[in-house]
Design a protein around this nucleic acid. Structure first.
Lengths: 250, 250
DNA sequence: GAGTGGTCTAGACCACTGT
DNA sequence: CAGTGGTCTAGACCACTCC
């Protein structure tokens, strides 16, 4: 067993649990601890770094969340280094506005259509309404630096007491569509991501060619009390979007 | 302000922090607390539920991680309900084996090719090796219930002391490829997900048609000491894979 | 029984921020 | 200054699991 020279600096303004997490992370990344190895027990780490157990546990918990450590109870147990999942991972897919901010591009939204339509079978089912009831249908193009990057189609529940405002429709964030209607404010969404190819109209709108690859993100939005308020899907140009797996730690 | 009738049951075997997290979650989902509202301060929750502050904080932290709460320090601060991101989210994309387990399908791997080749410019760059050095090239088909679902191409660093074994190559998990070589055991991976269409050879192998939509997941794998050990990409049939955003809580 | 991690407490002090 | 959250401690008891 190796000697572990790292220390937790008292003068350091970064929290002790975070410093310790970095130390443990370093042990793994440097190969000092390898997949399958067992980490020293909590109480031993407490002594070694002169920290309380809760602090040590918090550091370990960060690496467990990250998938780098696994914990087992019982006499033969302990905290073990696991090779992380390497063929799958966590993808944090940002919304359009955020993605444009990340890229440093100016995001804009162009409204193509906004109309009151009778709900078809599918939309009615998705929104939990009766078929034929009035709902709002939106079509919008999401642009970055003036270039069309995504095509958004959405159905919204219709609230007669809430007039449609251009200012709201022209905003990229779905939340803004309900900004003046607290009862319908979203609290949850289900998203699903699939691969698709552009159909003629989509290609035209997105300044691309039919058959080009694209992402399709379907979206179902819930307000309080299990009330569904929006359903739609967004087509992202495949040549403009690549999503990266992220480790939130360190 | 409403009355909050919920209690933390002592007899319940589920941890108190988890029970409290469910209560808070319920307040938001039921609309009792709406986006923008301020949650009671920690000490007030401690009194109300007869819990210590650390336990209350742990419950709150779960909802903060979930994106449902936001915390602010200072006199005017507090814990606020935020409308969660509704146009983007967290996607936990599982590896192939896991995905098949989830679906209850029998996963199998068919090896198409395994050869020692000189590293081209790109592969050498990705793996941090010299161009022309020997590396391993693999082609494999990942099948579910006998049906081809994904096509995997991968370059591996070549270790002369480690003979290639059929048993390893036929396993779906990248980690298994290094199972007898502790120095090269993966500790980290970068994945990137893009949309693509099947090219003729891919379509042929995947029993699909050229131009069909597909996901492409590029993968770069690190072992300890910043040593890169594998680079490749996997083509997932678009008609067989849809990825869903997940909230890990409750 | 012995050793591990899982939960929980009742305090303490600090950092931040609006009043 | 007052009130918020952020960190940390030194203990306690429990659940689990191998020996």
């Amino acid at each position: 067993m190796k000697v572990f020279p790292e220390k937790i600096e008292e003068g350091d303004s970064t929290p002790a649990y975070y410093q310790l997490a970095r130390v443990l992370h370093g042990w793994i990344m440097s190969g000092e601890l390898r997949p399958g190895d067992r980490l020293a027990p909590e109480l031993e780490l407490c002594c070694r770094f002169n920290l309380s157990r809760m602090t040590v546990r918090r550091a370990i918990a960060m690496l467990v969340d990250e998938g780098l450590l696994r914990r087992e109870r019982g006499r033969g147990g302990g905290t073990f280094v696991v090779g992380p999942k390497v063929d799958g991972g966590v993808f944090l897919i940002p919304d359009f506005q955020e993605e444009m901010r990340n890229r440093g591009l100016a995001a804009s939204v162009r409204l193509l259509k906004a109309s009151l339509v009778p709900a078809g079978e599918t939309a009615a089912g998705k929104l939990g309404l009766e078929k034929g009831g009035k709902i709002i249908y939106l079509e919008r193009v999401l642009e970055g630096e003036g270039q069309p990057l995504a095509f958004d189609r959405k159905y919204l529940v219709y609230d007669p007491s809430r007039p449609l405002l251009e200012a709201e429709l022209g905003h990229g964030d779905t939340r803004e569509l309900f900004s003046r209607c607290p009862e319908l404010m979203p609290v949850r969404a289900e998203l699903s991501l699939s691969a698709t190819v552009l159909r003629p109209r989509e290609a035209d709108i997105l300044d691309s060619r039919r058959g080009d690859p694209a992402f399709c993100m379907e979206q179902l939005v819930w307000a309080a009390n299990d009330h569904r308020v929006a359903w739609g899907w967004m087509i992202y140009r495949g040549d403009k979007f690549v999503f990266r797996s992220i480790s939130r730690l360190l």
